[in-house]
Amino acid sequence: MDFATLLQVLDSTVRLATPLLLACLAGLFSERSGVIDIGLEGKMLIAAFFSAAIAALTGSVWMGLGAGIVSSVLLSGLHGLASITFRGNQLISGVALNFLAAGLTVLIAQDWFSQGGRTPSLMGAGRWEAITLPFAETLRAVPVLGPIYYELISGHSILVYVALLCVPATWWVLFRTRFGLRLRAVGEAPEAVDTAGVSVVGLRYAAIVICGLLCGLAGSYLATGLQAGFVKDMTAGRGYIALAALIFAKWRPWYALMACLLFGLLQAVALRYQNIDFGGITIPVQVMDALPYILTVVILAGFVGRAIPPRAGGEPYVKER
């Protein structure tokens, strides 16, 4: 493998890791507050559809982004209604929302565009443009570092940089602000937060709105950045990979970045090579597909560093039990 190919694979790693990272951080906010969210997939999907659909109708990718975020936050709100207000089963609610998004997106797409559940291909202002960072052209001639800067660091759409900035932002919010302290506390010991006079319900809803917002960004990037339009079931399990990355990262922002880059790399390699020869042994592409899930199971099994979820995760909070 030469240097240029390596750069291309790494470049596609960054692109593929971006939606994973945004969804993973979304799940991080939700689960840190004690609301388990297996509906990341559905929220990404509905955001992908509405951002592509509105971008196609208005010709503006920003309008699309807004619509995607609104739809994803609404779905998040429904999850909150079921799991916080009505104290239902959070897992079942998540499953339901995934199906709701899978069905509704195709239904509405067929009604609006009649193209068999997809949106028209987006062009021009309907998609995120690649941003060329300053001096990328001039530095390109510099050996090794030049191409790295030009190919790998520069030339992505704005959402990629937003996603990367979300990592320190999430860390700062969670570990350096009062809101973050309370959010983490409500996921570990909601009764303590309640005793301190802070609203458990309010905090959890706040977390869920942030979760919806980030999933909206992820979906929008998927449909209007990574690809040019919405197709049926385009998230293709990314929400679950993000969930796996979240566990892999043990619910921490910086680890989440690493996990998402790793899983992005696996996807990029699987996309580029069908089978990999590895010193005589051929690794079939299906192993690459399954590897994120296998790694997560291994981590969950606790053989390689135990992943301990927030203590109150999945439990609806009932005052004065």
Binding site: S93, A96, F99, L100, L104, Q110, S114
Partner: peptide
């Protein structure tokens, strides 16, 4: 008709939502 099969997925989602998650409601 012009109604795609995914209508069933929506119905399925609503059934799961109401009988499972929004049971209390």
């Amino acid at each position: 008709t012009n109604i795609p099969r995914e209508l069933i997925v929506v119905i399925q989602a609503l059934v799961i939502l109401f009988t499972g998650a929004l049971d209390n409601m």
